[in-house]
């Protein structure tokens, strides 16, 4: 388990390093405006190739400022990250509940005679009560 966590941590660290290194090494220094978006650079390249080209359609809605735009980008990331976190949280909770329930029914079956042990166990957690009481009867 801890080996697993370590590998996951290393993966995240590698991604962070890939993002930070270009900044630390100053790889944008040769540009007038470092670290602009590639999409914008492509627009510039289009106007270089074909100076007469006029975009024939403009966005229906344009964020009025850079702040609003970054807010909407964060919203997009937050929606996605929230949904992912919900998924993994739900899975983890379900798995724990199942494990607890099966452990509980095993305990209850093992201590069929000893009511004291089963009683003490019921007080311990809330997860698998239904399954535990079902198997005790």
């Amino acid at each position: 388990m801890s080996r697993n966590a370590r590998i996951n941590g290393l993966l995240l660290l590698a991604v962070a390093a890939l993002a930070v290194l270009p900044l630390v090494l100053g790889l944008g220094d040769h540009k007038e405006e470092p670290f602009t978006g590639a999409d914008g650079e492509a627009e510039t390249a289009i106007t270089e190739i074909d100076p007469d080209y006029e975009p024939w359609f403009s966005p229906l809605y344009e964020p009025p400022s850079g702040e609003i735009e970054s807010a909407l980008f964060s919203l997009q990331a937050a929606i996605g990250a929230g949904a992912l976190a919900y998924y993994f949280g739900l899975r983890r909770g379900r798995r724990q509940g199942e494990e607890r329930a099966s452990a509980r029914s095993r305990d209850a079956a093992g201590a069929a005679g000893g009511d004291v042990a089963a009683g003490a166990d019921t007080g311990a957690g809330a997860g698998g009560d239904g399954a535990a009481s079902g198997s005790r009867d």
Binding site: P22, L23, L27, G37
Partner: peptide, 12 residues
């Protein structure tokens, strides 16, 4: 939504 800096000095 994640715009990341890259080796070419631009972001994508």
């Amino acid at each position: 939504a994640l715009k990341l800096p890259s080796v070419t000095g631009s972001c994508s």
